[in-house]
Amino acid sequence: MEYVTVQGVEVPKLGLGTWRLTGDDCRSAVETALELGYRHVDTAQAYGNERQVGAAIASSDVDREDVFLTSKLKGGNRDYDGVLRSTDESLAKLRTDHLDLLLIHWPNRRVPTRETLDAMAELVENGSVKHVGVSNFKREALAEARDYADVPIFTDQVQFHPYWDQTDLLDYCDIHDVLLTAYSPLGHGGVLRDPVLAEVGEEYDKSPAQVALRWVTQHEPVATIPKATSREHLEANLEVFDFELTDEEMERIRQPSKLRTLSGVVRSRSPL
């Protein structure tokens, strides 16, 4: 496992995302991930799976302090009291006395970002949360949040993969010591059929998915949280730190395309 250091904190570069994982499937995936060596788990109030994530961590042999655990505020829990109340509920569901990271899940014009961040700062002060951040914020919104916050903004969790250009945001995060947490690093499955990734992968005996994950994690300051359920895929995702892409390969793999990104989203949400 490789780590990225932001604001003096080491975070595993590869974690487990749990979006759209529910019930026994979610618990099993988290249990297997922890068994294999994952130490970074991401959930959210809106996912409806905090109980399963918490149960998996509690039943594992891994000490809670060794797991970097993230959750995110639901849209309706953005007012001051809602932040405090819902975070207490999340902690109970997750069977823990603190979150390593709490995020604003999406921008919300109905509640001032400053109000939400003020409540999150109180949670940091009382020890319920170690770090705070945002998700799905563009560079300008991230800069505004950093100006408002009484505690450092630790991360911006956004979609990032070879088809989705995040150069401006990456540069901003690197300059200001903010982690970029990449979700959907496989382009909602689109990279699996990419001929460039397949060709590069042949050189290293790696799959297109592994090449895409390596491409994402080779950027700084980036960690990523791909979703996986099977042991096979969880193991394969971990096997991306034993090779390094060249500068030429990094540039070749980068193929910004909003059309490919949209197609991947549609494909991921369609029934088989």
Rank of each mutant, 00 (worst) to 15 (best):
N77K: 03
G189L: 06
P12L: 14
S270V: 09
R146Q: 15
V6L: 12
L238I: 05
D97E: 10
I253S: 06
R193L: 13
L94M: 03
L234W: 06
R260T: 13
T43K: 08
D63F: 01
V265G: 06
L117N: 08
V6D: 09
E244Q: 14
V6A: 11
E115I: 14
T22A: 14
L262H: 06
A228K: 02
E202I: 04
D63Q: 06
R254V: 08
G75L: 10
A198I: 02
P107E: 00
E115A: 14
L169R: 09
L170Q: 11
V67P: 10
L142Y: 01
K74C: 01
M120Y: 03
Y204L: 09
L245T: 07
S135V: 13
G190N: 01
S230Q: 12
Y163N: 02
I225Y: 01
A33F: 13
Q255A: 06
G54N: 06
T217D: 01
A236W: 09
V151K: 09
W215N: 04
S184N: 06
Y38W: 10
D97T: 10
E248G: 13
V53Q: 06
L197C: 05
G201D: 02
R231V: 10
R193F: 14
R95P: 03
G54M: 09
E122Q: 14
D165Y: 03
A29Q: 04
L142R: 07
L69Y: 02
G133W: 08
D168K: 15
R254F: 15
R51T: 13
E65V: 04
Y183L: 10
V216E: 01
L94K: 04
L21C: 13
W19V: 15
C173N: 12
L234S: 08
V53Y: 06
G264L: 11
H219Q: 15
S207H: 01
V129C: 12
R252M: 12
L238C: 05
I104P: 07
D150L: 07
V124M: 09
L99P: 00
T181A: 11
M250E: 04
K72S: 09
D147P: 01
G54R: 10
L180T: 12
G190W: 00
L179W: 01
D118Y: 02
L102E: 00
V4D: 10
Q157D: 00
S71A: 10
T22G: 04
W215P: 05
V200E: 04
D171N: 11
V196E: 00
L142A: 05
L102H: 02
R254A: 14
V30W: 14
L262I: 11
R193I: 11
A29N: 03
H40G: 12
